[in-house]
Design a protein around this nucleic acid. Structure first.
Lengths: 335, 335
DNA sequence: CTCCATAATTGAATCGTTTTAAGAATCGTA
DNA sequence: TACGATTCTTAAAACGATTCAATTATGGAG
């Protein structure tokens, strides 16, 4: 394996290894003329720096580890994309790990990142990993929580105000004149979901509107559809006139059950519908879906920025960033 | 930064660094008693091996680089998942890169992987990167093409027979008694798409059925929907009785245009519909969608297996693996 | 033409692990 | 008890880039 090293480059350019290193890492400390000779040698030999060696010397890698709950959820791929962009601007790369809501996988990724002495860790936690994160910190590896406020306030976090999101959604339905509302989502143990419900409750307080809660086992199209088809079976006067689905997958299922041939419930005429997340598909649904948008790429970008700050100065106090979600009105809520 | 090394562990256990290394990498070469002492020391000190140092010694990393065209496409996340599983079984991890059909990004990832001296590269190529891959090979890093047969037969590849897939889809429509067919997809420069069309043509040959080709600018829900709404405007006798959409996103759009309130074209009564990819959403559509399934996780898994073989023995001849797609019949084609 | 201050370059030491060849310990056997 | 024959353990030498302290070159001022 003809692996060319700085030593070979140095020989070819007639300089010392130190100079070669300077050309790459501290240009300006070297005369343009010599720099040119070195660059030429690098080019001719097809030299590519060995990252492991650089890392070993440096003590930390130029990679950021990111662990998300579910890569198949567009929200998280968007977060990842934002993180990747911000990291790239700082000359770093991102390794994406998918915990799949599985404690073992989550733990395995943290092990891997610790071995790799990553620059920092971004994580949307599934289990309680405070102890692990403290250990990473002791090793000089900062961590930032994503899409979740930390119970341990010594860690920074970047999240979205789900209570406000729920409030926004239901306040909108009420503003459209709807009074008999249904919240569709679950499991309620998931913090984000219960927060959205809490927001919904705040929004109806004192308005005279009612809120029926139907808990689902998962946030999927199928769950949404079957729950909604039950609603269709009710007598017309017992049906709600507005539905708030806890995410867009559920809302999509609801929509299918309502407009399906045979059901023919008018949306938004008879029932207004709003989802959550504003995934790409929402705008392309049979009836374009109103939704609550979260600034997903911005979350990723911000998390990286905080991480880099903390990596540069470990004495920095933790910051809790909470973004506000945004109402997106489309046809399904008759806005 | 209290970074503990093998040296510290050795001191604590009262042995030499070589023994510590043996405990971790060649257990069995060491007496159970000493092994226990060392393990205890590792535990007590919270020692975690420095991957950079190991890699430097080893010459190659324990990571596989994977570059896909689009992380947001469920097909690719499934491929990635299969690759990850297979890699994990071999004690390796996968770094996922998203080229986003962008030459610069694709190139940047290859640079990164080369610097990292990855174990191997899996890539679903966008531009012509044969030269880059040859250079990697010269450095001892094998590469396997994914979802694309290689023009350079010296590289292994794992792909799916798109011609067969197109044939399967259209043969099915014909078997359902459909005769006036439409192919909806594009751009036709994309190899996979033109192959599917070619398969469709083979299937109608000699059957008396006709095939109208409507080329789209992109494989998206919106494109599919607007093309289908044009079809709805035709006189009934000029409408096709079967539509083959080049992927499930397009098919979803078509479905929306057909069953939408106001259009009310019966699916499959009046028009039978089949898509391609069998994404999760296909089964959950308003009318469950027939589709052509590709063994996505198997593709990822197989690609890793070939890669590992080649990493172990670079003299191995290249293999071209072509999987056969599978017909999945659901309500939309009236099967 | 010297001398000094400043800039450019050098090369040895370092990061932490793994691997060897060599040395030490252990055991059963004669 | 001593002898090979194993079995364990050791210490030093890599791997390749970076960084300093030390050295050499360069220019400008007197």
């Amino acid at each position: 394996m003809a692996t060319t090293s700085v030593r070979d480059v140095a020989a070819r350019a007639g300089v010392s290894v130190g100079t070669v290193s300077n050309v790459m890492n501290h240009p300006g400390k070297v005369t343009p003329a010599t720099a040119a000779r070195v660059t030429a040698a690098i080019e001719e030999l097809g030299f590519i720096r060995n990252d492991a060696a650089r890392q070993l010397r440096d003590g930390r890698s130029k990679t950021i580890g990111l662990v998300v709950l579910d890569v198949r959820n567009p929200f998280f791929t968007d977060v990842a994309r934002g993180a990747e962009d911000a990291a790239a601007e700082a000359g770093l790369s991102v390794t994406l790990g998918n915990s799949d809501e599985n404690t073992d996988r989550e733990s395995a990724y943290l092990d891997l990142f610790e071995q790799q002495r990553v620059h920092g860790v971004l994580i949307s936690p599934y289990s309680d990993i405070t102890a692990r994160l403290l250990r990473l910190r002791a090793r000089g590896i900062p961590a930032v929580l994503v899409d979740r406020t930390s119970s341990d306030l010594s860690f920074s976090s970047v999240s979205v105000d789900d209570v406000a999101g729920g409030r926004l959604a239901v306040a909108h339905l009420i503003a459209q004149g709807r009074r008999r509302l249904v919240f569709l989502g679950g499991p309620l143990e998931i913090r984000q979901i219960s927060d959205r419900l809490e927001g919904a409750r705040q929004a109806i307080a004192g308005t005279g509107a009612t809120l029926e809660v139907i808990e689902l086992l998962a946030l999927s199209v199928l769950e949404g559809r079957s729950a909604a088809s039950q609603i269709v079976l009710r007598r017309v006067e017992d049906r709600p006139d507005g539905i708030f689905a806890a995410n867009d997958l559920v809302a999509t299922g609801v929509l299918q059950a309502l407009v399906m041939q045979g059901a023919d419930v008018a949306v938004p005429g008879e029932i207004a519908l709003i989802g959550y997340d504003d995934i790409d598909f929402a705008a392309a649904a049979v009836v374009p879906l109103s939704s609550i948008r979260q600034p997903s790429t911005l979350i990723g970008r911000t998390a990286v920025e905080i991480l880099l700050d903390e990596a540069a100065d470990s004495a920095l106090p933790a910051r809790q960033i909470v973004f506000q979600p945004e109402l997106v009105v489309r046809a399904s809520s008759g806005g």
